[in-house]
Design a protein around this nucleic acid. Structure first.
Length: 803
DNA sequence: TATAGGCATACGACTCAGTGCAT
DNA sequence: CTGCACTGAGTCGTATGCCT
């Protein structure tokens, strides 16, 4: 009988979860069939487990018996097996404890820890659904062929077909090159909530509009009748069900839209059953909201990695990426929504605004999702969690998978308070303008050091271990030693990443750069690079499971030694080094000598180095990590200076950029001075838009938790007093107003201040002039010359200022 | 539910010497 | 002459955000 009606199902794995049937957990694989059907595959045989590492004081069998005695009927301990594994590279014998109810693992962990003879309990904190895809080696977004039996779609599930897994499941190798997003239904949405100058409260403020769009379809808008929004929310639930999206995208919906809708629906007595199972969205891992059977992707998580955009509103991000230009859309501030709703003549503008937001959201999805899908199938985290997770966790989930494959037990996360260690070298720049400079860059220096010297927690020679000098690599300065063989955990993984990436990059060459194939492969190689580059920082992260301070310390020590050697060689070649930071060197662009240096680094040091860019001119002050360059194609690169910082006013940044551009392109300091003087004049005449005077700073903690008084904290307190919630992580925009007290007493949220209140002289003295002077000072320009009334400073100026 | 360290910069808080003024 | 408030220079700590 068994297997008689089994069939092969080809499906793409989208998400994984589990449900309890009685006291038995059943894994749910959410997927899409090759025929376009939406499917679930159930698997009821998988059981939660964890490992017990003995300390040797009690016999293993005796310990096993002690553990068995902890069994409780609500979730019996099903088995305790002796297993051979490795832990940080060393062979260990451990006990694998299997139980029934996933939620009981946590309690068993505590109970087992209290037993004598236990060194540690491991892998008890891996979520059950993830545990399943790790053990079965399944990666989200990839295609699989599974031996299944069709079953009736259970009540409450909205899928086309349901199956149970009855045999093998393996990756469909023929679809590896396929676009994982092709054929997936994507839906964008955005909500507008009634509010007037204060944070809306779901207990009373209605959701007045919801906009949504299926990819390729029309934007739809659901509207409340006056202040009654029950039908809007119910209508939204219906539309989601009928569109039946695989992916739901929004902007900041994990922190705003979903919590608000969930709470509002509760108040109104509407069931927010937008998932493929009749449950409402639930807070999940990494502050993300989980919509059952669908991938809920918050595009703000992607935007967080766009460091060029400082204030990450949907408008700004969409503008930056060219999705929807700010000049071609309706822009409203959140506090105007109520006003535009109440005024019938303005309501159409509000509709247009919402349409523009939905359009922007869908546009961002097109830009971001391809990378998200690749990162998902490289890291092994479902698409809706992978971008919500931090860099460290993305890598860690992939490490956990590799550990499972290698029979390595996963270390626990432990609290540590470790001191700092030495990092990279930054050279003191040679101040001034330099002509024709080549920037040499080491390719993935830290990952390559880890591979070359077999760096990792498992290869690190610990106190008491003895190896001959020939058997180990010894890090310079710090002296940490690493066994040359066998290849360690990190080396194996990084080598796989590096060769995988090499292979993808050679595959890319077969396709034209604007082809979909090329783009897909490019996103994939970027995802791999991201994880590889995170590995050094990960080892130095005290929260990391594979934390290894000595390893991180050794990597930077090798890095310092390598770049020092390269600098010495440059000197020997007569190649002038202008500047360098970590893994880069700025040298005179003497192609022959540069070529010899590159060959030396490759052949003698065994590292890849290449000319990353050439500057026609580059300018340094005395400061490290700051320079301005003019590239061969006429582009101005500003690095480190105020012009690229988010916590300076737009006016100061713009002025500094212009100054840099004039100086580098024309070499005329006088012209730059004139430019600045003109800006100051305009500012004093009130001809500068107030938006260019707003200063943005991140609130890193609740306002009351600050030790030092600061303008943006003052502004945040004023917002709170007005009923506007401010949370850590929020960017506070303020302007400085006139008055006599310290700066922090004169800051106001920009939307609470009038143009007349603004202290123009603050912006002259503390924004425009310092920003301009940062560059012009080097050429002998003084503050007086920038601020003075006439062409040159007059005697009158001199006397007025005294001194 | 924080990848790392190195660095520049602004501003508040504080110390301390010098100064002016009332007593 | 003493005592005290005030001022400016200098130093240190806090805070933010950049670079690689």
């Amino acid at each position: 009988m068994k297997g008689s009606d089994a069939t092969l199902l080809s499906f793409q794995l989208l998400d994984v979860s589990y449900e309890m049937r009685g006291s038995t957990p059943v894994i749910i694989l959410w997927g899409r069939g090759a025929d376009g059907s939406r499917v679930v595959v159930f698997y009821g045989e998988f059981r939660p487990y964890f490992y017990v590492l003995p300390d040797g004081s009690v016999g293993l069998d005796q310990l096993a018996a002690m553990i068995r005695r902890l069994s409780r009927p609500s979730s019996p301990i099903l088995s305790v097996e002796r297993v051979r594994r490795r832990f940080i590279g060393r062979e260990v014998e451990a006990l694998k404890v299997t139980t029934l109810v996933p939620a009981s693992v946590r309690e068993y962990r505590e109970a087992v820890r209290r037993l004598g003879g236990v060194r540690d309990v491991l892998e008890a904190d891996i979520p059950f659904a993830l545990r399943f895809i790790i053990d079965f080696n399944l990666y989200p977004m990839r295609w699989y062929v599974a031996e299944v039996r069709e079953v009736a779609v259970p009540h409450g599930y909205s899928v086309d077909r349901a199956y149970t897994l009855s045999g093998d499941i393996r990756e469909d190798e023929t679809r590896i090159q396929e676009d994982p997003l092709k054929g997936l239904r994507v839906m964008a949405f955005d909500i507008e909530v009634y509010s007037k100058m204060r944070t809306p409260d779901p207990k009373k403020d209605p959701v007045i509009m919801i906009g949504l769009q299926q990819a390729g379809g029309e934007i739809e808008i659901l509207e409340a009748e006056d202040r009654s929004d029950k039908k809007v929310i119910a209508g939204f639930v219906e539309r989601v069900k009928s569109i039946d999206p695989d992916v739901i995208v929004g902007y900041n919906q994990n922190r705003f839209d979903w919590p608000y809708l969930v709470e509002r629906a509760r108040v109104l007595g509407v069931k927010l059953a937008v998932g493929r199972r009749s449950v409402e969205p639930q807070p999940g891992l990494y502050g993300h909201y989980s919509v059952s059977g669908r991938l809920n992707v918050d595009l703000l998580d992607f935007a967080e990695e766009l460091h060029e955009v400082k204030v990450k509103t949907l408008e700004e991000v969409a503008d930056y990426l060219g999705v929807v230009k700010i000049g071609e859309r309706v822009t409203l501030e959140w506090w105007q929504i109520g006003e535009y709703w109440d005024d019938p003549s303005k309501r159409e503008i509000l509709r247009k605004y919402l349409r523009d937001d939905v359009r922007s959201t869908m546009g961002l999805a097109e830009k971001f999702l391809p990378f998200g899908a690749e990162l998902s199938q490289v890291s092994g985290l479902p698409l809706d969690q992978v971008m919500a997770a931090s860099v460290g966790f993305r890598l860690e989930w992939r490490l956990i998978r590799e550990a499972a494959k290698l029979g390595e037990l996963v270390p626990n996360r432990v609290e540590r308070s470790e001191g700092r260690y030495a990092g990279a070298i930054v050279l003191r720049p040679k101040p001034g303008v330099h002509e024709d400079i080549a920037v040499l860059d080491f390719a993935s220096m830290y990952p390559n050091i880890m591979v070359k010297y077999n760096v990792g927690p498992d290869t690190l020679v610990r106190p008491g271990e003895e190896y001959g000098e020939e058997e180990v690599y010894t890090a310079p300065e710090v002296g940490h030693k690493f066994r040359k063989s066998p290849p360690g955990f990190f080396k194996k993984i990084l080598e796989r990443f590096l060769s995988w990436r090499r292979q993808i990059r050679s595959e890319m060459k077969k396709h034209p750069p604007d082809s979909p194939e090329y783009k897909l492969l490019d996103e994939r190689q970027k995802a791999i690079k991201l994880l590889a580059n995170a590995s050094y920082g990960y080892m130095g992260w005290p929260h990391a499971r594979w934390y290894c301070r000595e390893c991180a310390e050794a990597v930077t020590a090798w890095g310092r030694s390598i770049i020092r050697t390269a600098i010495r060689k440059a000197g020997e070649l007569g190649l002038e080094v202008i500047y360098g930071d970590t893994d880069s060197l700025f040298v005179k662009n003497d192609p022959e000598k540069v070529e010899r240096l590159i060959r030396f680094v490759e052949e003698e040091l065994g590292f890849d180095i290449k000319v990353d860019k050439v500057y026609r001119r580059v300018f340094f002050t005395e400061a490290k990590k700051r320079y301005v360059g003019l590239t061969v194609d006429g582009k101005i690169d500003v690095v480190g200076f105020e012009a690229v910082r988010g916590d300076w006013s737009e006016l100061a940044k713009e002025t500094q950029f212009k100054v840099a551009e004039i100086v580098l392109k024309t070499g005329s300091v006088d012209e730059a001075v004139d430019y600045v003087r003109n800006i100051i004049e305009k500012l004093r005449r009130g001809q500068v838009d107030m938006r260019k005077l707003v200063i943005w700073k991140t609130l890193t903690r609740p306002p009351s938790m600050y030790e030092a008084r600061q303008p943006h904290v003052t502004a945040a307190l004023l917002m709170e007093r007005a009923g506007i919630k401010v949370e850590p992580g929020a960017k506070i925009g303020y302007v400085v107003t006139k008055g006599s007290g310290p700066l922090y007493t004169r800051a106001k949220p920009y939307f609470m201040a009038s143009k007349e209140e603004v202290d123009v002289e603050y912006y002259v003295d503390k924004q425009v002039v310092p920003a301009a002077l940062r560059i012009l000072q080097y050429f002998g320009v003084t503050e007086k010359r920038l601020k003075g009334g006439g062409r040159q400073s007059t005697l009158l100026d001199f006397m007025r200022r005294g001194k």
